[in-house]
């Protein structure tokens, strides 16, 4: 009688005992994680300003700095 009740008690308590077993916690292996996970694609490239604006900009810039930069570029 005593033996069977002990057995019943052990069977009843088994899940709790099993859960309380001294096991290490399950972990995500830190070293396995990707060092460079994918990152979002960059936003779309800016559109070129209107042709007229560029023409004006380059003409003005050439007037101001054109001569000086040419000298720097070709010192030989």
């Amino acid at each position: 009688m005593l033996r069977s009740s002990s057995l019943a008690l052990a069977l009843f308590a088994w899940p709790t005992l099993a859960a309380a077993d001294v096991l290490p916690d399950a972990e995500r292996p830190h070293d396995w994680e990707p060092r460079d996970p994918p990152t979002p694609a960059p936003p779309p490239e800016k559109e070129l300003p209107a042709l007229a604006l560029w023409l004006a900009a380059l003409a003005a810039a050439a007037l101001v700095t054109g001569t000086r930069t040419r000298l720097q570029e070709r010192p030989r």
């Binding site: 995500r28 292996p29 396995w32 994680e33 990707p34 460079d36 996970p37 994918p38």
Partner: peptide
């Protein structure tokens, strides 16, 4: 984690 690593 292994799947995530391979996906990367």
């Amino acid at each position: 984690v292994a799947y995530h690593r391979r996906a990367s």
